[in-house]
Design a protein around this nucleic acid. Structure first.
Lengths: 335, 335
DNA sequence: TTGTTTCGCGAAAACGTTTACGTAATTAAA
DNA sequence: TTTAATTACGTAAACGTTTTCGCGAAACAA
């Protein structure tokens, strides 16, 4: 590697003190414009960039944030990351990524490892395997943290979410409008507020329209993909629903496959609707009616909030930011 | 925030020097087991974790790598990141993500900003907008770097790629076997070795089977999605190909849409085949025949190579690791 | 016994910054 | 004129580690 070019080197070449160089680089009012220009010019010429470790150590700022999410290979989260990254670049921040794979222990391990000054703040969408409010109640006291989409309620922290209840209600009504009376629910995120809100929206819509809910019509998400497929096949065979309302993207493939293997025509014999950010939803066979969350904007908003906190700016009004999802009607609900 | 617990604090509580504590924490042979245990126990009790900035500054190791890619919201890259993350976790490394959005200037800016000791090494899949070998020839001298999928040739660096030429040849043959004689090529990554290899495979397969290639049958990828759609529509109308061979995932949606709007039946009137890692390929209407790259494994392999370099282990044989893609035949090529 | 190793630990420097404080020179106020 | 304030810069400490070097005590060899 090349010879180190640091602040000391700049100071020597310019015959000034390292303090002056440091202040000049940071555009301090203590330094004359003339000196600043000399420093800036030489810094550019020698391709100087400050050593981050030294800077972090002394100033206790890292210009780095962490994103802790279940998985990057998911349309919602990868879009969120794009939104986060866009804002992070604007602020000159670096972005660390950690995947929990829905494992709460991994989640704790990662966040704990970030408390020693590795990052200035955390953006997280929590694991669905458990709802451990206690841990996060402690965590938010120790580091600036913003939740997005998958949040913990009743904590002193900013949360960016979507209108899960309302959109699920609206989607259920759409199915009812299309003539469905036995709407099965593919239940994901059951431990989390988002999952509960979606389910409530579904239940309330049924009730409002005089339809009975039934435990038989509910399939809970399981990590094992094969098991999910079997559950849906069994559901179709035994209870013959006329619609599948999936609360998470992960149910789409097994749902379509199960219908195909049962020989059920979509949307004639059964309608399908799902929360999803798949860009190929309109190309599916048949095109899938989706509830599309503004994933990119959620990432952006969450990041903006975090940087407001990091810059000690007052958060406008409150801690809950709620964005609107959109119901995109396509062939799979056929009306 | 809580009171700082650092090495000094541990030393005081145990009445030993900070040097001893540091060595004990790093399991140095200089320290007796008895003392080590005292240190380890107290460290655990006080939840001590070393300050990364101080550690980095002194040791010049960051336990961090950077991943520089065009975009995370892409199935191939998000899967690659998963593979990279898995290996990084095994080694206890942290992962920084940078998106270039195919902008070569952003790419340079990011990588340059990583040269001051922010990371120990870089994994990258380069932008397709340009082929600037010179820059990277310099870069690889300054920091451990591994290319994956989108690489620069003829550099002294490890490259993890796939069998682009062979699989494109094979895919073209598949189309020919299905009776196609006017196979259009949707050309992506034309500046990069991967794009060129795919195109060569296509051309050579045509030639071997006595089919003529034609510039009219080639559509080059453009950033503007609308423009791509128009180009394909024009292609269909004017030159009536009986197959579309797409070299990148981004052409799938416009290709399907164009066929639909032109009223062409897939696969009866036109067949479609594409490089893609879409999990929903089998759900498309009709199910899409794909060339699926082992994205996850590419990420894993690339990361493994980087860590071998970082740990000064000899790289087994050579610098080119080539993984196999797989042609998954489905309805869109209908035979 | 004496001499030589080995073992276990501590003192102190170093990594490259930032920043509190001091100070000389210049300018403004009295 | 004297005094106070301002400007522009330097000295040195500090951030929390790692690591070189040295040293006394114990263990071993002669």
């Amino acid at each position: 590697m090349a010879e180190a070019v640091n602040i000391k080197r700049l100071a020597q070449e310019l015959n000034i003190s390292i303090a002056t160089v440091s202040k000049a680089l940071n555009d301090s009012y203590e330094i004359s414009l003339k000196t600043k220009n000399r420093v800036w010019d030489l810094a550019k010429e020698l391709n100087y960039t400050p050593n981050p470790a030294a800077s972090n150590l002394r100033s206790n700022k890292t210009k780095t944030i962490a994103v802790v999410i279940p998985c990057v290979a998911n349309n919602f989260f990868s879009l969120s990351i794009m939104g986060i990254e866009e804002i992070a670049r604007q602020y000159g921040y670096h972005v660390l990524i950690y995947q929990t794979h829905e494992n709460i222990e991994a989640e704790k391990a990662f966040t704990n490892s970030l408390l020693n000054g590795r990052v200035d703040g955390i953006l997280t969408s929590v694991s669905s395997s458990e709802y451990n409010s206690e841990y996060y109640a402690n965590l938010v006291k120790k580091i600036p943290l913003v939740f997005f989409d998958r949040v913990y309620q009743d904590l002193d922290a900013v949360k960016v979410t979507t209108d899960d209840y309302e959109i699920a209600y609206q989607a259920t009504e759409h199915l009812i409008d299309c003539g469905c009376t036995k709407i099965a629910y593919l239940f994901g995120l059951e431990n989390l507020p988002a999952g509960k809100a979606r389910f409530s929206g579904y239940l309330d819509a049924l009730r409002t329209h005089g339809l009975a809910a039934s435990d038989h019509l509910i399939v809970k998400y399981h990590e094992d993909e094969e098991f999910n497929l079997q559950q849906i096949e069994e559901l179709l065979e035994k209870y013959k629903p006329d619609a599948l309302f999936s609360s998470i993207e992960e149910f789409i493939i097994p749902a379509y496959c199960a219908c195909r293997e049962s020989g059920l025509q979509i949307p004639d014999e059964i309608k399908i609707l799902s929360f999803s950010n798949l860009s190929t939803a309109k190309l599916l066979s048949p095109a899938l009616t989706t509830i599309s969350q503004p994933a990119f904007e959620i990432g952006r908003e969450a990041a903006k909030c975090l940087f407001k906190i990091l810059n000690n700016k007052q958060l406008d009004d409150e801690q809950n930011i709620i964005l609107k999802s959109v119901l995109v009607k396509r062939e799979s609900t056929g009306c």
